[in-house]
Design a protein around this nucleic acid. Sequence first.
DNA 1: ATAGAATTTAGATATATACCAAATTATGGA
DNA 2: TCCATAATTTGGTATATATCTAAATTCTAT
Lengths: 146, 146
Amino acid sequence: MQAFTGQELSSKKVSYLKYIYMRGDLVKTTEIAARFDVAPSTVTKALGEIAKAGYIEHTPYHGVKLTPLGTEYARFLVRRHRIVALVLSHFGLTPEEACSEAEKIEQSFSKDLVDRICRSLGHPIMSVCGEIEHDHGCCSAGGHPV
Amino acid sequence: MQAFTGQELSSKKVSYLKYIYMRGDLVKTTEIAARFDVAPSTVTKALGEIAKAGYIEHTPYHGVKLTPLGTEYARFLVRRHRIVALVLSHFGLTPEEACSEAEKIEQSFSKDLVDRICRSLGHPIMSVCGEIEHDHGCCSAGGHPV
DNA sequence: ATAGAATTTAGATATATACCAAATTATGGA
DNA sequence: TCCATAATTTGGTATATATCTAAATTCTAT
């Protein structure tokens, strides 16, 4: 498995990548632009950069698709999001609040930090906005023994 | 009291402001530059912007000093830092780890979120890297009743 | 085959961060 | 006091991110 840090992509690119992952298969520029309320040209430029980084395959005029690396990375991004949302829910935020607040702060959580929180929580399988997948060595590897 | 959101200043500016607060009184450009390992000119520019925003008073060639607004804001920044560090410590991070990890993620925590976490924790007076001041209506005001 | 929709390209703007080199100001020692 | 040196600021440049508009290109469905 890759050694992600969680800081490979900027905040907006992470949002786009997660969206592409959730939508699955081929995703169109216009759809992403509509979802994030930005101009299509803004999305085109970002997609080009995400593609250059190897996370998606961009077929001009046709759409984007995750690469295997992108899929693996997106899985981490979603896990990070859900772990952070779960943590916030412990402070009394409703599932909706926890999810939207997580969206704002998750960007700065490193993979190592997420893994430690995950371990400390006993590798929960459910968050407030979906299941938490613990594939491979993910958060059980490294650091303190489980 | 002011209605801060926590996003008034960029990440680096927040770091500089917290440092100025901790150092107290008149702080010199070179000192800040040394502390953050950047060129003095980089600091000068940032200080100019922080001053324009009203948080510090910059006397060219002599140093900077917090304004009342800046002092109040810095107090919030320090409280935010300590609340976040305290939260991280609950997941098994040592005080040092919690403090340095908090430094990386606190920027994106809004005042509202900090206040909610603070309330949920029962307004703790101690964190892992110092005391937590709860002046004015701070985290007990607004939102759900305490 | 082509009009209209989708998309990309090109050119601008804005913010944040940072550097270097040159100019300016401050300050301490003779 | 005067000046050499240190500190600081200015001005110019650079990168990265994010965004837009307008024009050009490509796709697609009639």
